[in-house]
Design a binder for these strands. Sequence first.
RNA 1: GCGCCUGUAGUGAAGGGGUUAUCACAAGAGGUUUCCAACCUCUUGUCCCGGGUUCAAAUCCCGGCGGGCGCACCA
Length: 572
Amino acid sequence: MSEEGRLERLTSMMRRRGIVLPSFEIYGGVSGLIDYGPVGARIKRRVVESWVDHWTSQGDVVEIDSPSITPKEVLVASGHVGEFNDHMSECISCGGIFRSDHLIEGSHPNPDSISGREIDDVISAEGVTCPNCEEFNWNPAKPMNLMFPTTIGAMKGGREAYMRPETAQGMFMLYPSLYRHFKQKLPFGALQTGRGYRNEISPRQGMIRLREFNMAELEYFIDPEDPPTGDIGEWGTPVELVPDPEGGSSETHRITFADALEKGMIKHPTVAWFLARTWDFLVGIGIDGSKIRFRQHTSTEMAHYASDCWDCEIFGEYGWIECVGIANRTCHDLESHEEHSGTNLLRGWRQYSEPVLVKREVLSPIGSVIGPIFKGKASDVSDALSGLEEIPGNLPFSIDIGEGDIVEITSEMVTRRVEEVNVHGEWFTPHVVEPAFGIDRIIWHVIDHAFNESGKDGEEYTILSLDERVTPFDVSVLPLFDKDGMDELARHLASEINSIPGIRADIDTSRSIGRRYARADEIGVPWAITVDHTSLEDGTVTVRRRDDQMQIRAPMEMVIEGISSRSLNGMF
RNA sequence: GCGCCUGUAGUGAAGGGGUUAUCACAAGAGGUUUCCAACCUCUUGUCCCGGGUUCAAAUCCCGGCGGGCGCACCA
């Protein structure tokens, strides 16, 4: 079948078979919101489960789950509010786009916090002209924040909040608990899957750019002075890398991860490790390895929080689409949350291999002297003395005890001595390497790559060649005829298969057997078990393999065992 | 958000100011049939929403919503 119209046939099939459909369709639909139907939801669940399994099997990664509703302060600290809450004004005459608050600076007491309409009023009232072409010809200011605002609590007491634009902040919020869980030893990671919300200006391309979408993010906390490397030598297959063109070499390379790291194309060993593990995951759920490439971000497109970033792009009906972002977020988030929240719990302890003996000169306050002299201020004086970076050579001297209050310290008030302490380590802010997966985009490409229209016996025929890990059903049970006891036996068999943990059987009794095979093939069910007259006599059934329509006959118990151990292939 | 195109059963399409809106496939019931979309009978189900023009609108006009493409945007 020709490639022309393939996208339409694929999306039609997905609608018709209940994989992915527009949401709220009886009310006209909402762009950027989709439903997973009965078949799609199962595929999605299995993709997500495969993802969680893939990373948690590493041993030092755990799963968490945090709220979608996020107080504003968190997103202020993360930078999402500041970076994305601006109104933009567009000049109709020259097409220039400017931050509205910059245009009206000086004309309004608080240009940061007013509505678009107010901005336009101020621009009109003040006759602000375009900095570029001097014209006065503005489009209405458009808010550029892509977060959905909401309020926690009712009425006046409400607290400002947003629907989370990423799940990552949840992992940062839980850092102290994770640090305890991992016995205060780095590196470790935490992941979560869930919804993220971005009020896209113009969602397009079906399920590629959504307003509410499924993310799967992993934050891996490391000591920047001792970054974990992993053995990336295992990945012998060359992959396609597109390094940052500003870094000198812009052409695509086919190169192994190990070589790319050695040559400096991938800058960070932990990032290289995650690139390789990401490759594994994608290929493992059925993405075509020849349609994967990794592209390094240029400094201009880098997120506000990242220092080095690679996109994993997958090729499909929409061209190359970013499906995974792997970023070295450094200490940006933890440091910023420490600063904004005032906590000091977002750190790691770096134990020295040898304790370091540190000699330190101190002036220790003599309480019996300082107390009576300074009374209520005495403890401030003591704190100021112990906080001194440098000990003055001569007494008396003046010291600031806070809020500009300066007092004089005389030699009677203090004892000068030298402290010797063994320092065993130091606190530092961990760095974070983050692989962030767009689950919906990955599901799209899994289905796209599996959508096989190559036909059968010269006729049009479609098979969804999904990997067994992500099929909607493990097996379809089909009574050859829906009567004469075959129906009952089939139902019995289906319920037996369904009682195996993690295995789902579908039963299909209507219309001809060929048609039912076709229906199962179309949504990627890998095995079909047919109950026929012989089954009633000797308890054997036929097992049909989706990908080559090969068929064998075997006793039911053996088939059930084969399904349970996922070893049906061995029977062919 | 702007521009161009567009919206008819589950899917894909035809038609179109005037009786009961057409076709294929799909789906449901029954029959037939000893394993690959067969066949026969019957059945269900559609003009995106709102306004306007008109005696009459699914059809023409306007707006909204949805979809496609281009520009812009895309942490």
